[in-house]
């Protein structure tokens, strides 16, 4: 069941809690990183309970290591299940990436080659997540900085097959598409043309940083700046094909005051609204 409203949402930052409480901004949902709410009690849960009472909630995991080689961490999956039971989020999502190895947690979303072997591993892991949580999850496409000689499938082929085998949905991060395509000198529109859009349950938009390398720009998925104009253009093109979808503005580093984020959310909201009008006329 995925029923986040097809409206803009924000990543919740505790420093915005007082402003959110006093202004009750008109947003479709808030998204939180699951791992920040895995303590027993205190401020994080007090804030999340209050937020959840007024807004739809997207629970976004960053630590499950779905693309890892070993078994999923059963304790971590149990913690996610407890959070889902406690807050009943409208959506749970995780990443096509790995972050743990040999019992150590590396705190980054690391890439994997796309092969029949890794496809089987990722699908087994997603089957397990969906069985334990008793819900359909969304899997997010990554930002990548390198490729692998071992890969025999494209990322979009890989994701489409994951969807077909597991029945999971996808979280399409449009900034990640732009970052990866720029880094690998490929065409983001070709990627989106191949992307299984029918499975998308949520969109992510975030800012990236740019480094100059001798061969050209290297984009880094830094989430510390406004969404870049080319990403807004790609977002509008995706919406034209999918219709309105829940859209998150991600801003995790150098977090500005709430109104700056609301301005970004309003820009997504205007594109969503324009679409509603067009669809209404067409209907």
């Amino acid at each position: 069941m995925i029923n986040l409203p097809a409206a803009p949402g924000l990543g919740f930052k505790p420093e915005h809690f007082a402003a959110i409480r006093s202004t009750r901004p008109d947003l479709g949902f808030f998204e939180v990183h699951a791992e920040n709410y895995m303590g027993a009690g205190g401020v994080p849960h007090a804030q999340l309970r209050e937020l959840r009472a007024d807004y739809a909630l997207s629970l976004h995991g960053v630590g499950l290591s779905i693309g890892g080689a070993g078994r999923l961490d059963a304790e971590h999956l149990a913690r996610l299940n407890r959070l889902c039971n406690a807050y009943e989020p409208e959506s749970f999502s995780e990443h096509l990436a790995w972050s743990s190895h040999g019992g150590d947690y590396l705190n980054d979303l690391l890439p994997l080659p796309y092969t029949p072997e890794t496809l089987g591993i990722v699908c087994d892991h997603i089957d397990e997540v969906q069985a334990v949580l008793g819900r359909r999850m969304l899997l997010e496409n990554p930002s990548t900085y390198v490729l692998f000689a071992q890969s025999t499938l494209s990322e979009t082929e890989f994701l489409a097959e994951v969807v077909r085998r597991t029945g999971c949905g996808l979280l399409l991060d449009v900034n990640n598409v732009f970052v990866s395509a720029t880094n690998h000198r490929t065409d983001p529109r070709a990627y989106l043309a191949d992307f299984p859009l029918a499975a998308v349950g949520e969109l992510h938009l975030g800012g990236h940083a740019e480094e100059a390398l001798p061969s050209g720009p290297l984009l880094i998925d830094a989430h510390g700046t406004p969404v870049a104009d080319p990403v807004w253009t790609l977002y509008a093109e995706v919406l034209a094909r999918t219709g309105p979808l829940p859209t998150l503005i991600e801003w995790d580093n150098d977090v500005p005051e709430l109104p700056v984020l609301l301005t970004e959310a309003a820009r997504a909201g205007a594109l969503l609204d324009a679409l509603e009008v067009r669809h209404a006329r067409a209907g």
Binding site: P113, V146, L147, F148, A149, N183, H184, R185, S215, G216
Partner: peptide, 12 residues
């Protein structure tokens, strides 16, 4: 197996 269009070491 790590590859890139260029500067693979810096990208990694």
């Amino acid at each position: 197996g790590v590859t890139a269009v260029a500067e693979a070491e810096q990208r990694f």
